[in-house]
Nucleic acid binder design. Sequence first.
DNA 1: AAAGCCGTTTTCACGATATGAAAAATGCAA
DNA 2: TTGCATTTTTCATATCGTGAAAACGGCTTT
Lengths: 275, 275
Amino acid sequence: MVSQDNPPSEPRRARGRPRDWSDKTAQNTIKSLDRAMEVFEFLSEHQGKALTTLATETDQSPATVYRILVTLEGRGLVEFDAVEQLWHIGPRAFVIGARFLRRTSLVERARPVMRRLMEQTGETANLGIERGGQVLFVSQVETEATIRAFFPPGTLSPMHASGIGKALLAEMDDARLQRALAGKTLTAFTPHSITDLNALRADLAQVRARGYAVDAEERNIGMRCIAAPVFDIHQEAVAGISVSGPTSRVGLEDIERLSVAVRAAAADLSATLGG
Amino acid sequence: MVSQDNPPSEPRRARGRPRDWSDKTAQNTIKSLDRAMEVFEFLSEHQGKALTTLATETDQSPATVYRILVTLEGRGLVEFDAVEQLWHIGPRAFVIGARFLRRTSLVERARPVMRRLMEQTGETANLGIERGGQVLFVSQVETEATIRAFFPPGTLSPMHASGIGKALLAEMDDARLQRALAGKTLTAFTPHSITDLNALRADLAQVRARGYAVDAEERNIGMRCIAAPVFDIHQEAVAGISVSGPTSRVGLEDIERLSVAVRAAAADLSATLGG
DNA sequence: AAAGCCGTTTTCACGATATGAAAAATGCAA
DNA sequence: TTGCATTTTTCATATCGTGAAAACGGCTTT
């Protein structure tokens, strides 16, 4: 299987000789590296795979996969569990990946704001950004309650079925909204999911009007989520902040109250970003 | 019933033909892949590098580095910032790396670190977190000595009278410290317990300065304990690791020596958490 | 404005090296 | 034991990654 193709919009303005985008077969990618990364990605998706399985499922020879794994193991990017005889993603992959967050100081700045939000509301606070047409959850502060919403950082979720996603969509103009939803089908995860484009537009208008988005069991049954957008210095919505909790604690009558805290937190964070 | 008295930390052998460990030069690693991963790692360490810089500093040809970057870009593992003309770690690297955490919990990851710590020091190693204003001991590896410190996992202990507790308190800012101690009285368990708030603050300053906390018979007469904080990806102190033993073996003159091992173990564990 | 500089991307020819088949070496099951 | 499954190594082959240098544009300088 070949990797994802390049985003057609936003052409790169490189300094030197421009890239030949017409060549669809991506002539100057390194095949062996791409195949190795395919194994790497595949391994991350399916934790704990044996060599043979991995070779079969990525459609490569066991010898090649073996050498890829040994090479990556040398750098700690993958690990071999001697007891279970299985390969796993290694700690170094985590360390490297986590540095993605360091680029923008967003996550660091958000930390105290999120902690305060969690303490005020008693619910798990989340921070998410848009990446590749999906919501990427980059950070969270968990509630101390035993029943809690749990989004491991690094989780991806469709925009239309997430509070943060809708908060971000609501801030886009028509052209960007069009692009963001292009080719996407509004998948239903629960009976409450929004699957109709017009319904989504209507919801987004409401979100924009009141300043916060609600995910009422649209992604997971039994979970509600209230989100607000975070603006940077250019007044662009760069992230969303939310609280999420079980319907038992986050009732429909609690939404109004919680939204105040969420919007305040989002405004706080926006302020530290110059928004 | 079959009684097994096998050494606890002996790794089971691999199923197939065993690896040839004698070959120091790691003959069956893929050179090109390793070089590519070097660029990948290097990029993660130094955010925002231009192609030429990257090529110079990893000592490879610009053409090669370019192809590596374009290949990784195709999978979202790296990103090119068109505005700044710089390469960065990409979101997919974060997504993949984050899956590392799903495999094991803090406790499981701490296990080998604690075992090594116990073997180095000869004393019982403990792992504790803060929960509801107290220290919760979640795991331990016991020494083989007959006289041993024993904390059943699940034990709760006040923060001010525990090495781990003080290591955690020392990392809090004033506001959090205030809240953590709010309404708590500094109960005396032994004549050595710290009962005065100012004395505690002074001790915490010392803890922060030298990087480890000492519980010198403050909770139990005849027991000393040396603890260091464990940091997660956000550089927040999420746990503490310690060794504890009887005063007969853990003399005041041993503290300095033991603290080295404890801090090393804490740093090790922090590293696998991304700290 | 034109020319020069600089960094990026592509072309091209060469040979280093990645590759798969098969063999070797082990554990596990019968 | 023998057989089967799985991992690791060997080896011959040609794929494909590599570096030098040229091509291309943006940016700066005259």
